[in-house]
Every structure is written in C-alpha cells, then in structure tokens.
Design a protein around this nucleic acid. Structure first.
Length: 199
DNA sequence: GGTGGGATTAGCT
DNA sequence: GCTAATCCCACCA
C-alpha cells in the first residue's frame, strides 16, 4: 500500500462506522488514519494492526465481567476512545464500537507513522522508524496518548480518525498477550507491513 | 485497608 | 528467552 504524506482531503470516519460490531470494524480500521493534534505539532499514522474485543463470550475482553469505573468508556456508544494503563507504565488505545452499553472495542496495536515523525521519535526517545509505533504501548507513547483521552469522542479534535487507504491483503491470527480467550481469530494486520508489532 | 495482576516494552543473557 | 519497571483498580477482608 502507498503511504501519502498528508491528510488533506481525508474525511472523518462517519458515525455509522463505529456502530458496527468490533469484529467487523477491526479489519476495516486497517488503512484508516489516526491523527493527534498536539501543542507541539500534528501527529498522524496509518493503522496497520488491530484486535477486536467482543462483548459476548469473550473472556479476554475487559468488559467480560461487566462495567466498572476503569472500563466505563468501553460501554459508551461507538466512536469513543477507551484508554487504559497497563503494567503501570504503558497505555493502550482502543476504539469503542457498537451501541451504547454493548461493551466492545478494537485495540489499535500498530501504526505506520505519517506526519510528525520527528516529534514521535522525541516522544519515544528513539529514532528507528519501523519500531516507532509497532506496538500498543509504543504508539501511545509516540502519539502522546494517555488517560486524559479516555472517553474522548474520536470524531472531534484533538484526537480523531480519518478515512485512508484501501487495504487489499489482510492477515487474520489469534490475539497477542492474552491469558484468556487466546483461541479466537480476532487479530488483523496489513499483510507484509513492516510496521506491525510482530510477524 | 491490603493485595495481586495485567490486551507491554526494553535491555540483558 | 527472561525479567524488571511501575500503578491503577478490582476484589477480598
């Protein structure tokens, strides 16, 4: 897939997009553009890897045991951001999908950096382009995403998702790093992308 | 009020 | 391959 530099002319993802089930939305999020307008400049990247977390029959999902203070934004209507802290140090960024109260989301696991690469490198403290956003914790650090953006509406600034490239070849595998719900084939990535979190 | 674990990462062996 | 880093919060008492 080609990588255009700017986001000019790209439209916001429509509200309807977010009302789909996570398992449908996740592969369709590949190729879309995540943008964060920060005081230090604009950061953007193309989504190349995502995982779906379902509301029903998915013990790997944070929402599996019902709504708590921590996962509350996961129960919002599709289009909200669900951000949480993991292992005390890293953040994970999810796109909430489905109806209000459904409790589904798509974890964004990797991006191909587009705009603001030098700022991302500064945020990450390292330069290698391929590993700048090649993991859920890495991309949050590169993009400056933290708990302040938990519950944020992704159809508004400063953090939003635009249309992007059509992706032709998608690989589907099991999800990464889970203790429960390992068997489900709910991880999707752009086949051959050098920017995914692992092969 | 105390405790244990986690959708990760980097650095070392 | 192994493990420390580090902290919110769910859960149990």
């Amino acid at each position: 897939m080609g990588i255009p530099l700017g986001c000019e002319g790209l439209k916001l993802l429509p509200e309807d997009f977010y009302l789909q089930d996570a398992a449908r939305a996740a592969p369709q999020l590949l190729g879309k553009t995540l943008v964060h307008d920060t005081p230090a400049g604009r950061l953007s990247g193309t989504i190349v890897e995502a995982e779906a977390y379902l509301s029903r029959d998915d013990p790997g999902c944070h929402a599996a045991r019902g709504e708590t203070r921590r996962n509350a934004s996961m129960f919002r209507a599709g289009g909200a951001a669900y951000v949480y802290l993991i292992y005390g140090i890293y953040h994970c960024f999810n796109v909430v999908t489905g109806r209000e109260g459904q409790g589904e989301a798509v974890l964004i696991r990797a991006l191909a950096p587009r705009e603001g690469i030098s700022l991302m490198a500064q945020n990450r403290g390292r330069r290698d382009l391929r590993s700048l956003c090649s993991g859920p914790g890495k991309l949050c650090r590169a993009f400056g995403i933290d708990l302040r953006l938990n519950g944020h509406n992704l159809r508004e600034g400063p953090l939003y998702i635009l249309e992007g490239e059509e992706v032709r070849d998608i690989t589907t595998t099991t999800r990464v790093g889970l203790n429960r719900g390992r068997d489900k084939l709910l991880r999707y990535y752009v086949t051959g992308s050098p920017f995914i979190s692992r092969p």
